[in-house]
Amino acid sequence: MGQAALKTATTGAKVVALPGVKAEVVALPGVAGRRLVDRLGPWLRAALVNILPPLITVALILLVWQLSAHGPQSSLPPPTKIWEEARDLITEPFFWNGSQDIGLGWRILVSLQRVAIGFSLAAVVGVLLGALVGQSVWAMRGLDPVFQVLRTVPPLAWLPLSLAAFRDSQPSAIFVIFITAIWPVIINTAVGIRNIPQDYRNVAQVLRLNQIEFFFKIMVPSAAPYIFTGLRIGVGLSWLAIVAAEMLTGGVGIGFFIWDAWNSSRLSDIIVALIYIGVVGFVLDRLVAFVGTIVTRGTLTN
């Protein structure tokens, strides 16, 4: 980085004639030929700086893992064995050989669908409840203690109750997602609403905005950074909860796949599934964060 900057600085520097000194412009050898390299140089360097360290880390982990799980009496499979046993899962996420022998991509999609439904519900209900709690002192006094207690209940503890209530695994799993994701959305939205500057409320009052206009034109945009913080935490928790919930409810999801693989001692499959789950969770988090930066652009700075 530093060298590149120095290079551009020297080649791109203006020649300033000092009084009494005859300045001569000396053509650097091979400048024209290096143009493309110069232009690509910084970009390549930035890419290397960001990509190389994680690649090295992964390589090291794989190496240590391979060495420590190498022996025949090892209880966990080494990377090479995983590659042999679960190659189809890694290379073909979307194969379809009958209803129970399908690619992990399909299973992930089924889990994602559940998360999408549960999380969307949690987002809508959470923002509305959060707005209520943030806006009304009485709603806060009444609801906040209840929320604070309920939000500490672990997601899976809701599952038996929801199975009893819905009598079906699909809505129960969705309910667990919903109840997991909603608390951070409610709490962050409420904080965001409470932090709306009095100035904006005054503007709304002078314009005589009604409740609905105030909600959409002042509240939501003003609290958007807080709301998205809540949504980001919520989507992370949903993804944590769905895998656990699916282990218990069965069906097609990625969680049940892990449980099923454990019951038939396919350890390699489990490890591949874990990596899938991690990558998808990472992408989900970044996705919500990305949407957040687009939506709240301009809101944070004044």
Partner: peptide, 29 residues
């Protein structure tokens, strides 16, 4: 005894809504 647009206020710290453009801030009103 209640606020209204017939008594418009120019606030000390401008109170423009930062997520709206200049045009949209006036358009809101």
């Amino acid at each position: 005894n209640s606020p209204g647009p017939e008594r418009a206020v120019v606030f000390q710290n401008h109170s423009l809504l930062p997520w709206l453009t200049v045009y949209d801030n006036v358009a809101l009103a």
